[in-house]
Structures are given as C-alpha cells and as structure tokens.
Design a protein around this nucleic acid. Structure first.
Lengths: 165, 165
DNA sequence: TTGATTTGCTGGCATATGCCACTATCTTGG
DNA sequence: CCAAGATAGTGGCATATGCCAGCAAATCAA
C-alpha cells in the first residue's frame, strides 16, 4: 500500500544515495543518542572523542579529514567539548599555526564510560541488521567516505588513454 | 600505513555504524551539493522537495516520518523553502491542527531543473561504487531507516516465548 | 631579506537537526 | 456540553555542518 511510491517520481526517493544515507543517519542518531542517554555525550561527540583518542593528539586539519568533515565545522563541534573540559587544544611547538586537540583525563574517562553503552548499542545494531549486512554496510560506507572516492567522483571523467596532463 | 588503526581503540572507529553513516553522509553531502551547485538548492533541500512531490500535499507529521526526521526539524528546514517561495503551507480543511505542505509552481519547476544534475550525480555514484554495492547500500539503509527497525532496536529484548503482556 | 603564496585556524552567517515547553485542536468519557 | 487526554505544530535553545572572509605563521621566489 505504502503511498504509491512509483507514480513517475519514485526514482529520487528510492535511488538517491544521499537521501538514503542522511535518512539513515538521522534514524541512527536517534537510536544511538538514546542508547548513551544520560552519559552527557551525544553520539556525534562520542565519535569525535573516539577519533581524537585514536589519533593521539591530532592537529585540526588531519582530524577533520579523518572524519570527512569541514575544518570549521570541526572547530564548532569541539567548542562544547572544550567548554565541558573533555578536550584541550594546544599549539604545536614546531609550527605555531598548528593547534593540537587531545583528551583531558576527564574526557578519556567519559569516553570509556560511554563506551560500554555504545558497545551494547552496536551489538544490538549488528544483531538486527545481521552480521553480513553490517559488514557490507561498513565496507561500502568506508569506500564512499574515503578521500579517493571523493577525488574519483569529482574527477572530470578520466579519459581512458592519457589522464595525465 | 594508515595511522595504526588497530592499537586497542580501533573498535569504535571501524565498527560504529553511526559514525560510519554520518561520515559518509558528510562526504556525500559535499559531493551532491557540488553536483547541483548553482541551482539554488542544497542536496538536502532537493531531497525534501522530492519527498513532498512524492507524497502530494502531506501534513508535516507524515512527511517527517517518511524522512525519519523530527517534526520540529522539518519545520525549521522548510523555512528557507517557504521564504524562497518554493513551497507553501496551508491548513487542512477537515482538521485545523493539520497544515499541509505542497510545492509551488516555482518549486516544482526548480525541482525538475535540479533533477537533471542530480541524476548525473547519482549515476556517477553508482558507477563508482558499483551496481551491486549501490543496490546493497540502498537495501540495508532502507532497512535501518525503517520505523520497524527503530521499534525493534528500542524493544526491551523481546523474549522468545511470550512477548505479549 | 622581503613580498607573494600557501597553509592552518577562527569567526560570522546560514542551513540541518533535535529536544522541550507551549498553544491550538480534536477526541472522548461523563 | 465540559474537562481530561491525545494530536499537530510553533518557537526557543543547542548542537552539527558548511562556506567564506579574514588573520597569522610558514614557505617560496627573487
């Protein structure tokens, strides 16, 4: 029954990768936010802290790249975390343009705490979508989010003979 | 080489479905926005207009549900489109609480124009990720974004015998 | 060395999203 | 019909993101 999704305009809704990914992102945001509710962190902030921990004390630019995020967007997103004392930003000694982000002890602690709730949510996710689909999703999204994908997407249709020059 | 992603904290980055989907969403947002650049629409607005056209003249709540979006978020997102005269909101005759959104002639025209650029981007996307993966992605994301998935995710671990009661 | 260019960030403005409180309507049980 | 509860939206506040215009530091060219 579902709303005649096939008149003559169904193509956009059921084919647009961007729409589909964003829709899923909104849904997962709700679910994961609920899962770690009360921890004082949003799911997005959790991801951000985890990435910072993973990279050590990254400069903003590399961190933004790792997250496929705009530099200034990253800067904005860090503000609540700075305000709450979960991360610090300090200038690099060698290059004074560079500012490095790192977890404070409180940030590291918070991250570990929330990680338990996250793990439960993640297991719930995998159980529901199935191990195979979960793995496939990771693989495909990882490909899509990669810088190589972006470069290829933007490339002006590489000629099959001499793309150089 | 890629940044030792396997120390002892790699689990979050390479397993979190929410992080992965959001990262991909940011990337695709950039790519699709670029693809329809100059049309006067963002990719998100394009999706929104397409969904409105698909549903006819939906009330806000059903439209929000179809997009897995919060009702108030939808309201906010509609404002720029209202301001630019691409959609109108009018009260329902039967139920005066209900307000229905519909495309204006300008909105319908704009949508059709942008659709060409969108189609090119979508084809580019499918060519790059491959038809199989593109289909798998749609299928999995569609499952994840469904209301059933959310309900199951939130369900308090359904007992295998008598979930009723 | 010094001006031109590049690189790394910050800030301002705008959209994208979500939660909560509140208002306006329906709906329903008395 | 009226009060209680459910439903549909709006507005305020906060985070999430992105673009663009600076600003500062490093690098390069002459």
């Amino acid at each position: 029954m579902e709303q005649q999704v096939d008149g003559q305009h169904g193509g956009v809704w059921d084919a647009c990768a961007n729409s589909a990914v964003r829709r899923a992102a909104r849904r997962l945001g709700q679910l994961y936010d609920d899962a770690i509710e009360g921890s004082g962190l949003r799911a997005t902030q959790f991801s951000l802290l985890a990435q910072i921990r993973l990279l050590g004390a990254p400069a903003l630019q590399p961190l933004a790249s790792a997250l496929a995020m705009d530099l200034s967007a990253l800067g904005h997103s860090l503000k609540p975390l700075l305000r709450d004392g979960l991360v610090t930003i300090e200038p690099d000694d060698r290059d004074r343009r560079v500012r490095r982000v790192s977890l404070t002890p409180a940030g590291a602690r918070r991250l570990e705490d929330v990680e338990r709730a996250w793990r439960a949510a993640q297991q719930r996710f995998e159980a529901l979508v199935g191990a195979d689909d979960a793995a496939a999703l990771q693989r495909i999204l990882s490909k899509v989010a990669s810088p190589e994908f972006a470069a290829a997407f933007r490339a002006p249709a590489p000629a099959e003979d001499a793309p150089s020059e």
